[in-house]
Amino acid sequence: MVKTASVTDKPIQLRVFPQRLLQPGTAECLLNEIDQVKGVIRMLLNGKNLPRKVICGPGTGSDVNHPDRTIIHVGGCAFELHIIVGEVLVEVENETAVEEVKKACERALPFSFEFKRGHFIKRRPTLTDYGKYGFKGKYDETLNLDDERLLGLTDPNAKAETHLCMTNTGEKP
């Protein structure tokens, strides 16, 4: 029998939308609080770009040196923020984790925030993903990707190594 379904479980997705754009310190604190919640599968940061250089106008090519483009540490992993964090999308395993994530946000954010459930990150591979990665085998039509949690976490043309951060890689959900 040919195996077709790539993803069979149905994790819950959450959107944390703070009242203000987060500065690196607050973002680091928030991400670490969420990271400590048991049952968090993956997180996705959205926000406005902080370019390295001026990309248009008469000043094109000048260095920006934005103070918010800095290195933060989450779950023992360091990475450079390329954006000012505007929202955090979180995927969790179950209902218990939902409440825990909400409590983590309340602890970390000094202002109000929206907390919503919905469909925010890609849940299953699309035709483009199958075109990009292919099937695992002749009788296994699941996606030929070691970790499907990576799907939907970066823009299609972005370099994964500069945009992805893996913490607790030993544990699989």
Binding site: L21, G57, I84
Partner: peptide
């Protein structure tokens, strides 16, 4: 003069408007 992005965004934590070019 350019890269005006920020007028419709939420304010930063310090209460100022976001400026991509700092």
């Amino acid at each position: 003069g350019c890269t005006v992005h920020g007028h419709s965004l939420r304010l930063q934590e310090d209460g100022t408007m976001f400026d991509m070019l700092d």
